[in-house]
């Protein structure tokens, strides 16, 4: 019996090791490719061949010194992600707190609206949303097309984080609110000075969810952004994938450089990644 258990244990580890290798294979392939001349990739395709005689750091050198705009895209995405995460977290926690801590008329109706937003695929809103931004420009003269404000503004108070923060804050002790009131704190002071700091642990998970969506966002930025100088990293990389393969050195080294920071963050904050990216399941 003990022998059998040991055997199963070994088999399991072998199975998962093989699986892990298969899963990492594509990433390893692009990592290897980033050291090969791009013409070779274009001619032969992406594979795992290792030929040290043709491998070099040329692609990276070109990436770091070339004028392909790669670092501009990188910076744009970074800026966009930081602003989006900050605004969305504060706004969604604000709203989630309102749903968690108060009883008020219409509460169920309004919360039903939050659930409704989660049930409609974002892709359907994109067309009328674009028309709306055009309309805002025509009527009020406020330009939102081709701006980061246009990307961020419609998605500041997001349904999923609101839902999550409501769940989390419902679990915070209500006594703190009463204590705050007795001490003469305003309703908003209670939120900003007492309750929001208490909810900080839940910010990490949501920050990662919102941040990943923003960093990787494609369809909406594709429609809003027009200028070459304002492209985000995914938009910039996608623009390089032409049938002629003329920019493969930036595309491949750039793809690797796009994964690395997230991988580093993931290794350092695994728990929050896993919490954030599976939020909504199970408890929902």
């Amino acid at each position: 019996m003990k022998q059998r258990k040991k055997l199963i244990s070994i088999l399991l580890v072998v199975l998962f090791t093989l699986l892990a290798m298969v899963v990492l294979l594509p990433l390893f392939a692009i990592f290897l490719a980033s050291f090969r001349p791009s013409t070779e990739i274009f001619r032969k395709g992406l594979n795992l061949d290792v030929d040290l005689s043709i491998m070099s750091l040329d692609n990276y050198q070109y990436l770091f010194t070339g004028n392909e705009g790669y670092f501009q895209w990188f910076g744009n995405s970074l800026l966009l992600t930081v602003v989006q995460v900050t605004l969305t977290l504060v706004a969604s926690a604000f709203v989630g707190y309102g749903f968690a801590m108060y009883q008020f008329k219409g509460k169920n109706l309004f919360f039903g609206c939050v659930l409704l937003v989660m049930m409609v695929p974002l892709e359907i809103i994109i067309l009328p949303l674009f028309q709306l931004l055009m309309g805002i420009k025509a009527t009020f003269g406020i330009t939102l097309i081709d701006t980061y404000a246009g990307i961020i503004l419609p998605f500041i108070a997001q349904a999923m984080p609101i839902f999550f923060f409501r769940q989390y804050m419902s679990g915070l002790p209500h006594d703190f609110v009463d204590a705050g009131r007795v001490d003469g704190c305003s309703e908003y002071g209670i939120f900003f000075r007492i309750m929001m700091p208490l909810a900080i642990p839940s910010f990490a998970a949501m920050g990662i969810l919102v941040g990943m969506n923003s960093w990787n966002g494609f369809l909406w930025p594709l429609i809003v952004i027009r200028s070459q100088s304002k492209l985000t990293l995914p938009l910039g990389l996608a623009s390089l994938l032409s049938p002629y393969g003329n920019n493969y050195s930036v595309l491949i080294a750039g793809s690797v450089m796009a994964i690395v920071p997230i991988l580093v963050l993931f290794i350092s904050f695994q728990r929050y990644f896993i919490e954030g990216m599976t939020a909504g399941g199970v408890k929902g």
Partner: peptide
């Protein structure tokens, strides 16, 4: 963790 753009490229 990879964006669809990077995964699609690969």
């Amino acid at each position: 963790l990879t964006s669809v753009v990077v995964a699609g490229t690969i």
